[in-house]
Design a protein around this nucleic acid. Structure first.
Lengths: 194, 194
DNA sequence: ACAGCTCTAGAACGAACGCTCTACTCAGAG
DNA sequence: CTCTGAGTAGAGCGTTCGTTCTAGAGCTGT
């Protein structure tokens, strides 16, 4: 995720701003000019760094969002010994973050993924890889807690899907409750394998 | 959901086509002219029936999609006595439908909801109401199976959120497996309350 | 026959879209 | 010093967007 210190380069600013805008407004709803303006860059700079145009910017932005959430997920899994408690804590963390953003900053890939389903674009591939990577993180935590291989895979899929859906529900309802409720139920589900 | 026989009116054709297009391409990605063309209507007709413009068409389309899925959900809940089995059967049905549509026809409200989060529009309210209504259907099934009130509400939220997320995951992965896996896990979760 | 209404039909408008293009700045190599 | 290439800057391209507008077709009640 690049250096933390030092002022971010133009390219970095473009990617970060694009990631946030796509997360909030979707791929179609976000314009290249808006990205350039909010990133304090010019159109020329954007096309200089991303000759592939809007799609190339979006792919970079989604990969950035992917890694960003993966880090959150890894930290949450590592913070608690019990996998059920870890999942629940993660849901609560998402709920708090969502409220603090005014219910705007949801899953960084869902919106873009849904809009580009028809065209088997590189954007869609980046979204698929992000989801798969997140499932892997949960799966490994479960495997480390003694889960059978098949159970771990299936429960991991369920955890990521449920969190994703709960985030959408929470955004639409403008309430933390869906994420908190799903977190509790996921903890119960994970615990039922002990 | 109007009469099944008789050729559909122009207004009906517009709503049905709009619902399908928004489901596949999102709100921003779907144009008024495209809706008119695919519904075999003209721009004049669209604005005649929906003086509120694009947003009004979208609200009607989302309400249509809401009722459409609610009917599927109600039928699935009624088909099986055991609530866990009913939820799982519903997931399988969604998986099959998704594959048959070429992975394009997902949740009718998710895409539109995510795109209109910033502006507290009527579209967003329609999406929120749809999700809430679906939760109610599941909740009542659980209550009828002896669930405590609080458990029923929370599990219903989890079921709808998980199905929603699993549908997105299945669409992106172009596979029935996420929906089938989540269906099994949800059945397990529901069963754990017996 | 005629008025009155619903609905159809599509040309036209200004704004915004993604993208291309040329012109410019400026630090470092020779 | 000149030269070069990376990066900045934005005007302008053609297209499409949502919307408005006028004109007329088709039907009904009188």
């Amino acid at each position: 995720m690049s250096q933390n210190s030092a002022p971010p380069s133009t390219r970095e600013r473009i990617v970060v701003v694009a990631a946030r805008l796509i997360q909030r407004q979707g791929y179609v709803g976000t314009g290249i000019k808006q990205i350039a303006q909010e990133a304090q860059a010019t159109l020329g700079s954007v096309y200089h760094f991303f000759p592939g145009g809007k799609a190339a910017v979006a792919v970079a932005a989604i990969k950035y969002g992917d890694e960003e959430f993966a880090a959150v997920l890894r930290a949450a899994m590592a913070a608690e010994a019990d996998p059920g408690a870890a999942v629940q804590a993660c849901a609560v963390e998402l709920a708090v973050g969502l409220r603090e953003s005014g219910w705007t900053d949801g899953c960084p890939v869902t919106a873009a993924a849904l809009e580009t389903l028809g065209s088997d674009s590189e954007i869609q591939r980046a979204c698929a890889q992000a989801l798969l990577g997140w499932e892997r993180i949960v799966e490994e935590k479960l495997l480390g807690s003694g889960f059978a291989a098949e159970d771990a895979r299936e429960v991991a899929t369920t955890v990521i899907s449920a969190l994703e859906g709960a985030e959408v529900t929470a955004q639409v309802a403008r309430s933390e409750e869906p994420l908190r409720a799903v977190g509790r139920q996921l903890a119960r589900l994970v615990g039922s394998y002990a």
